[in-house]
Computed example of a mutant assay.
Amino acid sequence: MGVIVYLIIMLPFLIFAIVLSQGKGAFLLAGFNTMAQEDKEQYDEKALARFMGKMMYGYCFCVLLWILDELFHTQWLFHVGLVLFVALTLFLLIYANTGNRFKK
């Protein structure tokens, strides 16, 4: 049962990753789509979307580790996936919000 739940979680992540990694779908990014048009024009939309696509692939990998944990009944795979999930989130927050990396 747990494997099905994780697959349901992973499927939208994978679809978003594919769309975003092509440089499209920036309207799916919560903070970006609520900006005023003048503010959006200051950002490199393709670079931001590609970066978020890579991050979504990372999240898919974490969920894949959780699926493997359910299949093989090993607790350590879940813990590795959880640590990677938290580390990826911290990296995402720090990298995306410092250094004006995605401004034109």
Rank of each mutant, 00 (worst) to 15 (best):
V63M: 02
M10R: 04
L64I: 04
G58V: 05
F61A: 14
I9V: 15
H73W: 06
G23W: 01
V63S: 10
M55A: 12
G81Y: 00
A36F: 07
H73P: 11
F85H: 14
A26K: 06
A26F: 06
N100T: 07
A36M: 11
A26N: 14
F16D: 07
F102T: 01
Q37V: 06
L11N: 07
C62H: 00
G81C: 05
L88F: 07
F91A: 07
Y43E: 13
F102V: 00
L71G: 11
D44R: 05
R50N: 12
Q37K: 14
E38L: 10
A96L: 05
Y95R: 07
C62G: 00
F91L: 12
N33C: 00
Q22D: 14
Y6I: 01
L7C: 09
A87D: 04
G58M: 00
K40A: 11
L93H: 14
R50P: 12
F72K: 09
K54R: 12
F51C: 07
M35A: 04
P12E: 08
L71Y: 11
L92E: 10
N100C: 07
S21Y: 12
V5F: 14
E45R: 08
I67W: 02
V80C: 03
L11R: 04
Q37Y: 03
A30H: 04
V80W: 05
E38Q: 08
T34Q: 08
I67Q: 02
A87N: 05
F61K: 01
P12N: 09
I94H: 10
K54C: 13
K46A: 15
A49V: 08
Q37P: 12
L14K: 00
F51D: 10
L68M: 10
Q37E: 15
F16G: 06
K103W: 12
K103N: 10
T89W: 07
W76C: 00
V3Y: 08
T89N: 09
F51R: 04
L90N: 03
E45L: 03
F16K: 00
W66I: 02
C60L: 01
F72P: 07
H73E: 12
F85C: 03
A96D: 01
F102H: 01
T74R: 15
I67S: 06
L93Q: 03
L77M: 14
M1V: 11
N100Q: 12
R50T: 15
I15G: 03
L68V: 13
A47R: 15
Y6N: 08
F61Q: 04
G58A: 05
A47T: 12
G99S: 15
M1R: 14
L90M: 12
F61P: 01
V19I: 14
L7Q: 09
C60T: 03
Y57L: 06
F91I: 05
A26T: 03
T89P: 06
A36K: 09
I9R: 03
V63D: 01
G23P: 02
L28T: 04
F85A: 08
A96E: 11
V3G: 10
K40S: 11
K46M: 05
G25E: 05
I8M: 15
L64E: 05
R50K: 15
L92I: 08
I15Y: 11
Y43V: 05
T34H: 10
C62V: 04
N97M: 09
